[in-house]
């Protein structure tokens, strides 16, 4: 009984962590900045590859994972300054450009590094509850997803940078007139977004098969979570991941992965139909 209850929680936590970690970076880049970043998966892949390379070069895993996140963040900032910047007022063009970037990134990785990349040992042991044994690393992922949620919230709600960033994104002209340095704010925000994507990859690197196109397996879940969350991503992404996590984990458990996958997509359609402003819109309406 306890074992089954715990296992239900474990399954939910696992899906929740996957949704949050996939979506966190995109929540900033797409949710706040309005860039439809189809290269999101490739920033995740970048995090994975850097982590693996650093780990095999001898760094301890946590440090290697930090490298993965930082490198993805830096590349993101670089791309923001060079390519993304003219596209803020043109979300649909950002879709094309980032799709182009994603093509170049996956195929470039394939040509430069080959079709596969060496994997990493999953750290940590397994633990048993009743008749089941679980991977303790999955709990680390869950904890990390909560930390990421907290980090993003505190960063954008409680720091000076966060206030400036939100102000800039709402009204760039006004913010600039008040002395906020718009260029830096945008570059750093974008870099934090891609850095979080890199962190997602870094965290999942020890649990996956490493190939250049692996980022694609995160993309759909990431977009779906952000959109269901609604316009205010700081408020909406968490509840969205909880709702989708419960639905996905429940369907997986009762009907298998096929129904889980299709069910998740249908659930997204229905949620949007019922809550046209996403979770954040609904929450704001309830609280105000």
């Amino acid at each position: 009984m306890v074992a089954d209850l715990f296992s239900d929680f474990y399954q939910f936590a696992d899906v929740f962590a996957f949704l949050i970690l996939s979506a966190a970076g995109l929540a900033i880049i797409f949710g706040m900045m309005g860039v439809i970043n189809l290269a999101h998966g490739e920033f995740i892949m970048c995090g994975v590859y850097v982590t693996s390379a650093a780990y095999h070069a001898g760094l301890p895993l946590p440090l290697a994972q930090a490298c993965g996140a930082v490198v993805a963040g830096l590349i993101g900032m670089l791309l923001e300054v060079t390519i993304i910047r003219p596209l803020y007022s043109r979300p649909l063009d950002s879709l094309l450009v980032t799709w182009g970037i994603s093509l170049v990134a996956t195929q470039g990785t394939l040509i430069a590094l080959g079709s596969t990349f060496p994997g990493i040992d999953t750290p940590g042991h397994s633990f048993s509850v009743g008749e089941y044994s679980f991977s303790s690393y999955r709990m680390v992922l869950f904890a990390a997803s909560l930390c990421v949620l907290g980090f993003v919230y505190v960063l954008f709600m409680r720091t000076r940078f966060g206030v400036h960033a939100r102000a800039t994104m709402q009204n760039p002209g006004m913010a600039q007139a008040l002395g906020v340095r718009k260029g830096i704010i945008y570059a750093v925000s974008f870099g934090i977004g891609t850095g979080l994507a890199g962190l997602c990859g870094a965290l999942y690197a020890p649990t996956m098969n490493l190939i250049p196109t692996m980022g694609a397996s995160f993309l759909v879940e990431a977009f779906v979570t952000v959109v269901v969350g609604g316009a205010n991503v700081l408020l909406g992404t968490g509840p969205a991941a909880i709702a989708l996590g419960v639905i996905r984990a429940g369907l997986n458990a009762w009907y298998g992965q096929v129904v889980g996958e299709i069910g998740l997509l249908i659930a997204v359609v229905l949620i949007i139909r019922v809550l046209p402003d996403g979770f954040s819109g609904w929450l704001t309406r309830r609280t105000s």
Binding site: S7, D14, V15, F18, N209, T213, A249
Partner: peptide, 30 residues
């Protein structure tokens, strides 16, 4: 489904069923 990369539920279903061996027909990197 092709492209699925997360298997926590499957692993647990296996533990529940207590098989002698697994017949693996999973396909693709994910």
């Amino acid at each position: 489904p092709l492209g699925v990369s997360q298997f926590a539920q499957t692993i647990q279903n296996i533990q529940k069923a207590k098989p002698d061996w697994l017949y693996m027909l999973n396909v693709g990197a994910a």
